[in-house]
Amino acid sequence: MTYVFQFGIVFDRFPELLEGALLTIRLAAMALVLGLIVAVTCAYLRMSGPKPLRVLVGAYVEGIRNTPFLVQLYIIFFSLPGMGIRMDANQAALVGMVINFGAYATEIVRAGVQSVPAGQIEVGLALGLKRLQIYRFIVLFPAIKAVFPALASQFILLLLGSSVVSAISANELTAIANTLQSTTFRAFEVYIVVTLMYLAIAVAFRGLFAALYWCVFVRGRER
């Protein structure tokens, strides 16, 4: 073996990588919030909405869950402009991530809602609450609690999967790594460092979710 590792070059350009990592985190966090809004809405529509909407949401969920994220990105970034919908790469990446995460999270939230005992819903009906009020005030909180770990791991999958948005030239962590690789020719060093950065971000988010779960669902109940 004659190859000599040179990590110095990578660390000289570390600020650029950090900037890319920041965009990755920002994209993922925004997709999480917007995707959850989509999911909570779609889960409600899929269970209690009018029939055509129920079918439509079902088609959305199954369509997204059975096609690759990369192809969804290509459709958003390359196909939609033909219909007059244009956006830059970072916007397309965010839209793709929201649509993708929203579909998976819809199924997860639905499973959570179905785990809420029927008696609780009947209590809501007995109190004269409307369907939407029951969903909002009675069902949603325990439902999210029940599926919180599943949502967290789905988010980690989204975060790691977001590295493919570099393929539509969004300039997040992987894209920066590609640029660095092509200017320094230190592929192995660059990708090892970036892989470890992804690992660190994933581990940090897992810790954050564990803390969030404790704060919202464990401590909040004691008070």
Partner: peptide, 15 residues
């Protein structure tokens, strides 16, 4: 499971 598949591909292919 904690690193992107794309990175694993790059590392094996280029690395």
């Amino acid at each position: 499971q904690g690193t992107p598949l794309l990175m694993q591909l790059f590392l094996i292919y280029y690395g």
